Amino acid sequence: MKISRLLFFLAVLLTASVSFAQDSEDDESLSLDSGPIGSQFEYVTKKSGNYRADGVRYEVVRETNLYKLRENVLDSLKAFNKRIAELNSTISEHETTISSINKKLEETTTNLAAVTEEKDSMSFLGLSVSKGTYNIILWTIIAGLFILLGLFVYKFRSSNILTQEAKQNLAELEVEYEDHRRRALEREQKISRKLQDELNKQKKAK
Rank of each mutant, 00 (worst) to 15 (best):
E93D: 06
N102Y: 06
S159N: 12
L151C: 07
F146I: 13
F152A: 11
N72W: 02
L69N: 03
F152C: 10
S89R: 15
V129F: 01
L151R: 01
G55Q: 02
A79Q: 10
I137S: 03
E71C: 04
L127G: 02
V60C: 07
S121I: 03
L66N: 06
L69G: 01
T133E: 13
L138K: 15
L149Y: 02
M122H: 05
R57I: 08
I161T: 10
A143P: 03
K82L: 12
E106F: 07
T133M: 14
L145I: 13
R57N: 12
S158F: 09
S130N: 07
S128L: 04
N160I: 07
I98V: 15
L112H: 08
A113K: 13
N111E: 13
R157V: 15
F124I: 13
I136L: 02
R52F: 12
R83I: 02
I161V: 11
E86A: 11
S121D: 03
F124R: 05
Y51Q: 01
L112T: 12
E118R: 10
N160C: 05
A114H: 03
G126Y: 03
K155R: 14
L138H: 06
Y51W: 02
L74Y: 12
L77A: 11
V56F: 05
D120F: 07
G144F: 06
A53P: 00
E117M: 15
T110M: 05
E71V: 09
S158C: 08
Y134I: 00
L145Y: 04
I161C: 01
L77N: 10
A79S: 10
F80G: 07
V61N: 04
L74I: 15
L69M: 06
N111L: 10
L105W: 07
N88S: 04
T64Y: 04
V129M: 01
N65L: 05
I142S: 00
A114P: 00
V60E: 09
S99D: 09
L138C: 11
T163F: 15
R62C: 05
D54Q: 06
T97M: 09
E86C: 04
A143S: 08
A113P: 00
W139C: 04
A79I: 05
R83H: 04
T108V: 05
Y134H: 04
N135S: 08
L112G: 10
L125I: 08
